[in-house]
Design a protein around this nucleic acid. Structure first.
Length: 319
DNA sequence: CGCACGTGTTGTAATCGGTC
DNA sequence: GACCGATTACAACACGTGCG
């Protein structure tokens, strides 16, 4: 809640590779509804990847399904997952499938105010994540098998318990009363080291969900290259999670504030619009991103200028 | 013209602060 | 907890322009 002071508190976060690649939430905070005005319980993201075996691009699809009662995940849901990953990393390094947490601790990581409203939000998120199923078609990277699974359906959270904590230390509990358990598939991915470093301080300072999604995705892609170029629609709709539009100008406009913010903080290099967006043919554009040179943190960390996550070596998608 | 692309405007639900 | 009101961020709608 006070990001101004001690703003390097949570820089050593972790992200799961598959979640960095494809969104698991609707980008808009409002729950999308269908023509009948009912809440949708299904969301799809599509992209392609190059298959080195067949030398062709194959379709990747990620389908989210949830109960319409609980609704689809919102950007806040991704925040909670990242906070849980942080707690899991720094408590037992993912060894246990169950993460014990204190809601107040989660609030601090995410920058939520430590009040009852945040508690209900956290509860709603856990409810949604519990009922969420994600189907990956050619999109789930199996770090152990070092390949993409043809089809995998999994969730993230298989069970949870959330306990309201009274303000003030009533008893000095050693283990928090609240916990969440990863699904088997997701936990296996964590155990296989299919993770990367993520600067949560930087992430939670980003203003818009679009900028946050772009940061997670591009930070992964920047691991072994300084520039990323790909199809604009696949990037914007498939990997960032914007709603599809057949008008590319709409997509550019929705990306614009996020691009500007990421340029502002030095994560992305500033590019001319003509260089950023290159027309291939009518309706087909490519978008280009180059890694920027972030200003050195005010205090320390000059030495780790290499900024390479030593733990994250694997699971890098081709192209 | 017809299509691709740019831009102005409005709608909506989550969020947030405040109060009780 | 509940309620009110303002703000926000993306989606949807509408329309204009330029070009092959």
């Amino acid at each position: 809640m006070n990001p101004r002071e001690d703003n390097r508190k949570y820089h050593d976060g972790r992200d799961e590779m598959n979640l960095a690649d494809f969104p698991i939430s609707a980008l808009q905070r409002q729950q999308p509804s269908d023509a009948d005005g009912r809440k949708r319980d299904r969301l799809e993201f599509e992209a392609t990847r190059y298959d080195p075996v067949t030398h062709q691009r194959v379709l990747q699809r990620v389908t989210l399904t949830s109960s319409s009662r609980d609704g689809l995940p919102t950007p806040a849901d991704e925040h909670v997952i990242l906070a849980l990953l942080y707690v899991a990393k720094h408590s037992h390094n993912f060894a246990d499938a169950t993460v014990y947490f204190a809601p107040s601790q989660m609030f601090d990581v995410m920058g939520w105010a430590p009040n009852g409203r945040s508690y209900t939000r956290l509860r709603d998120v856990l409810r949604r994540l519990k009922s969420l199923t994600i189907r990956y078609e050619n999109a789930w990277w199996d770090a152990a098998g070092r390949g993409y699974e043809e089809e995998v359906a999994t969730g993230v959270i298989s069970a949870y318990k959330i306990a309201r904590q009274v303000s003030g230390p009533r008893t000095a509990n050693t283990t928090p009363l609240s916990w969440a358990t990863w699904t088997q598939q997701f936990h296996q991915s964590l155990l296989n080291g299919n993770i990367k470093r993520l600067d949560l301080d930087l992430f939670f300072r980003l203003k818009t969900p679009t900028a946050q999604r772009m940061y997670r995705f591009l930070d992964k892609r920047f691991y072994n290259t300084d520039s990323v170029a790909m199809d604009l629609i696949e990037f914007a709709c498939g990997h960032v999670g914007l709603t599809e539009s057949d008008n590319v100008a709409i997509l550019k406009r929705r990306l614009a504030p996020a691009v500007a913010e990421l340029e502002e903080i030095g994560f992305l290099a500033r590019l001319d619009p003509a260089e950023r967006y290159q027309k291939v043919k009518a309706g087909v554009w490519r978008v280009l991103f180059r890694r920027g040179t972030p200003p050195p943190p005010p205090s320390t960390a000059r030495g780790e200028g290499a900024r390479q996550p030593p733990a994250a070596r694997e699971g890098l998608t081709p192209l």
